[in-house]
Design a protein around this nucleic acid. Structure first.
Lengths: 257, 257
DNA sequence: TGCTGCAAGTTGTATATACAACCTGTTTAA
DNA sequence: TTAAACAGGTTGTATATACAACTTGCAGCA
């Protein structure tokens, strides 16, 4: 490890973020005060202050002068987590989520999966194949590969109760994600799993996520084009407030060129 | 004014932001260094440092150790502008962008376009229909509606030279954007414009953008599924550094369930 | 000429210190 | 009993200082 030491305020931030994402610190819990961090971590108060202040800006904690620092309620964790956990997305709409596990096995990395995860051919990989349902209607086929080292108890999990993404974020905190969205013709197997009509296209999300600078998981998420869309809402940085903009769902549109 | 004096770092930030938005400081211009601010504004270096550091986080300036602080280019405005201007995207890959204008007319808002733009039926609307080419191959059909009030000279523009999104961001600064991504079967007209093979699906982006709290434009962007994908790279707020993560393009993947 | 090394300026980080403002619970005084 | 005052802890800000790492230009040297 010839790595240069990270700044101390950054170490402090990562320490607290880790405690939050691991569940050790839960929303509304109290975070150590600046003076406590000074004593615990052997830093100056200004360094602890910078760490906590930046965590405030980033939405992880809330600070109240005279009271203390508290873990923020997990509001809208922009994009990544939203899109990632389809169970939360479905239940957030007030619908019922269910899940069928088609495959949950240990395999050896081959070909493009090995390349995508940046591991040697033959490395132990867990392979998961799930179908997610919204009110009983299939909306996603999740084809996921996980590096076995990161999730040793992957085979024992019951993914009908906890989605793979929720499980993975608990095991290895998500740090980076790369994704690509494509429109493709489904294979016959996918078409059958999603109960798609003939000729209906698939919306596919390919996603790799990193933890500690290494790829951890690689997922292919297939959705029926007629029943699923990705939505996003953006504001440019600087004036990030979007107070009263009614997010009218884009209507179904016909092409008429 | 019974207002309590604003913090000095905040005053510094607002001073610099004012200079930028007034045009006094332009992109790539040099911003006073910390030591210069110390001398000019009678603050300590740490206070000047905090002001410039927060302006960096908010995207207003860029800092280079050993060089100085410079007004940021407005380019890397995450996601929105990237995806929005397909010409920049194509030329950024080192490819040739060209464009064919199929329609450029004044119409009256009807039906779902009126609803999407939140205007009365019959309001004046510009309708643009373009095809974008990458190295001579069609990659996008841009079907765009613009509220006429915002762009009175829309009919005089030559959109082969300046893309509508570049023109619009010049006329009305983009402030908010809502978008949805779908996979659909193309209409025959779109299929012909994009020279798509039979049965090939379309990746469609529906986007509305706001300026000053009002919808300004509504676009339907059709892409050939076999030749186009949306990519994104995310880091959760907090550890935004992505130093050595080689963004290996996700390979073409076959489904083999 | 061409190269090295140094000096000056800049940002990045870290510390010690100080005071103000705020919140809470306790003590004190009316 | 009630209200005011106080003490202690917390965050928010500001300053002075220090050192490291980086960039650039220049002086000096081979």
């Amino acid at each position: 490890m010839t790595a240069v030491a990270k700044p101390r305020y950054q170490q402090l931030k990562e320490l607290i973020i880790t405690r939050i994402s691991s569940g050790e610190l839960r929303p509304r819990d109290r975070v150590p005060s600046e003076n406590e961090l000074v004593a615990l971590m052997q830093v100056s108060r200004m360094t602890a202050n910078r760490a906590l202040r930046e965590l405030t800006d980033e939405g992880y904690v809330e600070r109240i002068a005279g009271r203390g620092t508290y873990v923020a309620d997990q509001r809208s964790r922009s994009h990544v987590l939203e899109v990632q956990n389809i169970a939360d997305e479905i239940t957030g709409r007030g619908h019922a989520h269910s899940c069928e596990v088609l495959r949950q096995s240990l395999q050896h990395a081959r070909g493009e999966v090995a390349r995508a995860l940046d591991v040697e051919q033959g490395t132990d990989i867990f392979h998961l194949l799930l179908v997610h349902f919204e009110n009983g209607v299939p909306v996603q086929v999740e084809d996921r590969h996980v590096i076995a080292d990161f999730a040793p108890d992957c085979l024992e999990q019951d993914f009908r109760a906890v989605t793979p993404s929720a499980y993975l974020t608990a095991v290895a905190p998500l740090q980076e994600a790369e994704q690509a969205v494509r429109a493709v013709r489904p294979t016959e197997a996918v078409r059958r799993h999603l109960q798609m009509s003939d000729g209906e296209p698939c919306l596919v999300v390919l996603r790799r996520t990193w933890s500690d600078g290494r790829p951890v998981t690689f997922a292919r998420l297939h959705h029926p084009g007629s029943r699923y869309e990705l939505t996003g809402y953006y504001t440019p940085p600087g004036t990030p407030r979007s107070p009263a903009t009614k997010v009218v769902g884009l209507e179904k549109l016909e092409d008429e060129h």
